[in-house]
Design a protein around this nucleic acid. Sequence first.
RNA 1: GUGGGUGUAGCUCAGCGGUAGAGCACCAGGUUGUGGCCCUGGGGGUCGAGGGUUCAAGCCCCUUCACUCACCCCA
Length: 422
Amino acid sequence: MTIPLFQVVRGMNDHFGDVLQMHRHIEQTANKVFSCYGYQEIRTPIVESLDLFVRSVGQETDVVQKEMYLLAGKDKTPLCLRPENTASVVRAVLQHGLLQHNPEAKLWYCGPMFRRERPQQGRLRQFHQVGAEAFGNQEPSLDAELIGMLHHWLHTLGLHSMQLRINSLGTPQQRQQYTQVLQRHYEQHVGKLCAHCQRRLQGNALRVLDCKQPACIQLARTAPSSLEFLDTQSRSHFDEVCRLLKQADIAVHVDSTLVRGLDYYTHTVFEIVSTQGLGAQDAVAAGGRYNDLVQDLGGPQVPALGFAAGIERLALLLQHSESPTHQRQRKGPHVMLVHADAAGRNQVQQLANGLRQQGMRVQFTHSFRSVKAQMRLAHRCNAQHVLVLGQTEVQGGKALLKNMHTKQQQEVSLHVQDIVKQ
RNA sequence: GUGGGUGUAGCUCAGCGGUAGAGCACCAGGUUGUGGCCCUGGGGGUCGAGGGUUCAAGCCCCUUCACUCACCCCA
């Protein structure tokens, strides 16, 4: 193999052809579905100040501790590539006073995110997310609407083998109280935990519940449930969310071991897991409430919730499922201009420009090639018609227009308007 | 960050110490101005990179890089 001088950097991909087409399809479907629910698109910069994520995602999280792309530069404040978009959206909402204009703003986004992890299937260093955020309302019906919208979108994409897992973390106080109880529970059996869990019991005890080691799973069974530590208000919020989802015919799997890795979540947390097709990275979308984040980032006390979905993971599933929704054929040119000789070739450029001005897709080769070869090119790029130009045509002012599907040829004059009509 | 697997033509892969191969794709000709099928021919490789063993390395050994799967983490 010839050694390329440069290659894409690790964990990042070029997007073109079918993959790009698929990503666009996923994003356009999101736009279509989300707009039915009143969501407006927002695009925030890829570069943000590091402190934004330290404050929101959490100083102790892996995302901040190990996976951040920091920008070396002369800036006064340290900058980074965004590892997720919720904090940026909140920042933008506050900066532009969007809640003044609409206290219940609903926003959706898509774009690249960056986390410096070891790549594997469904896990890139530059990956792409579609997400949505809803502000200013703490009613359980908003939780149910957001999750329902996510469900609607995935359904529209043609994805069905999905499971919704849901849990509630309650308020930060309840979460902290629960964490302490959990630590006490595990401390009695520290020896039985895997080495990793023994370490994270102090820093991130909730994650121990999620461990896949058999011994840890065993201990998780007897651990107290986070739901037991909800006060009546939190509990009834959660119950109502579940009830509304069931009412909307969405299957709900309550999972009290479900914990999100970002610190800002409160109350409802959920994830959509694919039951097939993805390896270890089976979470397709995830999100939850973050009733304190707006305030934590210097804004008013405004409740909110949102989710993010991994476009690459969705694309993997869609490729597998051979869903007909994305099998749109590439549109070929309306007409391919074929030169038969030098005289014809001299005309091609001018004629092509004329037709293009009329909005037609027109192609021709800039090389000197046989008619046969040019016909092959026309076939390959799925051209609808072919127009052959040679000295005879140039002198006579007429040419044969061939329909590539019916194989029929008809004579047309070389005036742009006449060709467009055909 | 830790383990396992894999790197040979644009793509999918065979070759397992002794002259670098196949299929597909690409190009040309068969058809002196007409595509898909067919036939014939052709171009393309420092066998991921560097070092070592050997008369001889794509193959064995070491190092390194990339990809990949899993852990971890997460979308």
